[in-house]
Design a protein around this nucleic acid. Structure first.
Lengths: 125, 125
DNA sequence: CTGAAATATGAATATATGTTCATATGAACA
DNA sequence: TGTTCATATGAACATATATTCATATTTCAG
């Protein structure tokens, strides 16, 4: 439905036209933004983040992860499905076990930067 | 309530004890994980991501952002509040306008890595 | 001081999403 | 082949959260 009724949010005619023009010119397109948001959303849940970090330490089977997280196998499987579908993790079958591991080299980088951010907030005056 | 009833998810006694031990030893603690997830969650919404990316291009006042995103001033203000409280953005008042800008040097880095990820998915066979 | 403009915010609502529960699938073992 | 173990998955449910609507706050113009 957009937000057409109230198109003149600001009354200075166009408030800061140059700013708007610059931002509009250099903005990411909608598809990219949406994919990017979906990508980051995966890191925005503590369970998934724990799984991703654990897998950065070692390949693990589903029941290892369940036990490690102290969560139901079902909950873990559901999250693994999400991570699989987004190609953040891959898996291989070995007998009855399915072993998961990271499938994206950016995961560690992103987490590392996040940790820096957290640490700096701590050490801030 | 935890997940105590079903502590033996896997029956191989303890499935891959060495793996578990290694992961447990090197895992982030809960507080860090939770803060990290909250941090990443901020990037996991398209509106916030648009705002953050726009602010990486230029300082903007609220109504610039509203107009740019074609969203209500209220919706934008609510999201800015979230970003403010997490210290991702800062603001300064100039007359009636409030100008927002990024307050975290990691934002661009994280977005850049995310974009790399997206691009590689595209160029994948 | 009064009204208008820019921004902030509380409550309500609609939607998204994580977990549980029950059950299905698929592999190994007897 | 039938049973058991490891994993996957659909539906239901509960919670989280983004947007809207109405209104409050703050600043400037007159």
């Amino acid at each position: 439905m957009g937000y057409d009724e109230n198109i003149d949010v600001c009354t200075d005619d166009i408030v800061h036209e140059q700013t708007l023009q610059h931002v509009r010119t250099n903005m990411l397109n909608d598809q990219i933004v949406n994919e990017l948001a979906e990508f980051f959303r995966l890191f925005g849940d503590a369970t998934r983040l724990r799984i991703l970090y654990a897998l950065s330490l070692s390949e693990m089977c589903v029941c290892d992860i369940s036990e490690f997280l102290d969560m139901s196998q079902s909950a873990v499987s559901h999250q693994l499905k999400v991570l699989r579908q987004s190609r953040l993790v891959k898996y291989r079958r070995e007998g009855r076990n399915v072993f998961y591991s990271l499938d994206d080299e950016h995961i560690q980088q992103i987490i590392a930067i996040g940790l820096k951010h957290i640490n700096e907030k701590y050490t801030e005056s």
